[in-house]
Amino acid sequence: MRNTVRDLVYIGVFGALWGVVEISFGDLLHAVGSVPFTGSIVATVGITVALVGRRFVPRRGATLMTGVIALLLKLLSPSGQAIASVMLAILAQSLLVELGLLLLGQNRRVGYLLAGALAISWNMIHPFFSGLLFYGREVAEVYVSMIERGADTLGLDASAVWLVIALLLLIRVVMGVFGGWVAWDLGGLVQQRMGRRGVEDYPEELEGDQAAQ
């Protein structure tokens, strides 16, 4: 199914909104530096915007394209941050949103919650993934060894360290679910203000989702 002019315009607008979140809000929070979970907070706002956009263009691949626009705009970022790493994260998060919506449907709140949770969980995996890409597979050995040695030094069982990692992952899942919840509500409100243009204008997507469920 090809995108219409309206779809492309909405994808552009929501890509710009996501890009603005990454460039302004993201750079500001990273510059402050002392805020915990900075990356996850920025990603939650960005994913919320992208998911609101999905209510307006409920086509498969629309969020991925929105993410591509956002990452291209990130190139314009004036800060000296690791832009390539952020771009990789945006791409991975948009793919995970697509996966979440594919699994549970894009016309139900639960699909948005899963999509948000999956996307923000990436922030937990991202440093390890980019480390593997950047430094090679040997870095995994160093990480595992560091965890084991750190746990040993602190007198903890290695499984306690994994418990901490699981807790950090859970925090991100909760943030993602919150983002998905807000996006569903906010999308509905914006649709009301705009005069109800949304899922009902895409009967073929609705049928596809109903068949999948």
Binding site: V9, I11, V13, A16, G19, V68, I69, L72, L73
Partner: peptide
């Protein structure tokens, strides 16, 4: 497809 157009819209909407 249409990425160039969508990117143009995004840049102009900033």
């Amino acid at each position: 497809e249409g990425l160039g157009f969508a990117l143009g819209v995004a840049l102009n909407s900033l």
